[in-house]
């Protein structure tokens, strides 16, 4: 089982993800340069946090055209697991693999703190070890994390039980307190909080381990 971590120019959480998946959880992990198209031999892919391509135009807007992401669409179609964290979540929405968009925090501040999150759905393998309503503490670090979508999309997310995580005390003005969503099939999860930064008691907790463990669960 091997995990691929995509590295865009401007990614800055790629090494943190590998530290967590390989260093803490023991899964072989390799970096995938954004120009690579070859995803063979990979069982799961992580789009890490950071500022891909400087986040010019909009967060994730330019990353969307990276060669590696054209291969990612096939990978997802075939059922491969993809986790988008923070900027990775923004890229997944720009790419259309997840609905909605992430916009400027309502209070305009970059927020860097630990937040309490509620498991809103345990339908997918990402959170199947939890009960609905379980609380997780994970760090967030973003200026543009306010989830937005149309009423119609929100109803679809609710109908398909695709809202994975909700903020307990909404820090950024996200619609319906949304912190993370999955696609209908459940193999793609995007979330603003950083599970890779919560994988060791020394750095504030291990609530992020479950989501990263799920990269290799079927």
């Amino acid at each position: 089982m091997t995990i691929g971590v995509v590295v865009f120019p401007g990614s800055n959480c790629d090494r943190d993800v590998r530290w967590a998946t390989e260093g803490k959880l023991g899964f072989p992990t390799k970096f995938l340069w954004h120009e690579s198209r070859d995803l063979s031999g990979l069982d799961a892919i992580v789009l890490p946090g950071g500022f891909s391509y400087g986040d010019y135009l909009r967060c994730g807007a330019i990353a969307r055209f990276a060669p590696v992401l054209q291969s990612l669409i096939d990978f997802v179609d075939k059922g491969g697991k993809v986790l988008g964290i923070c900027n990775g979540f923004q890229v997944l929405t720009e790419l259309g693999l997840l609905p909605g968009a992430l916009t400027r925090n309502a209070d305009l501040r970059f927020i860097c703190q630990s937040v309490s999150l509620q498991v809103a759905s345990n339908r997918t393998t990402w959170l199947s070890d939890h009960k609905r309503g379980d609380l997780l503490t994970l760090p967030i670090a973003h200026g543009e994390g306010r989830y937005q979508c149309s009423d119609d999309t929100l109803h679809k997310l609710e109908d398909h039980d695709s809202i994975a995580l909700k903020y307990k005390n909404n820090p950024n003005g996200s619609l319906a307190d949304i912190a993370g969503i999955t696609n209908t099939k459940g193999n793609v999860l995007g979330l603003m909080p950083h599970p890779e930064r919560a994988c060791d008691q020394l750095t504030g907790g291990i609530d992020g381990q479950g989501i990263l463990q799920a990269l290799i669960s079927t």
Partner: peptide, 8 residues
């Protein structure tokens, strides 16, 4: 397809 995101 690039300059604007029709969602927002």
């Amino acid at each position: 397809r690039l300059l604007a995101n029709p969602v927002i």
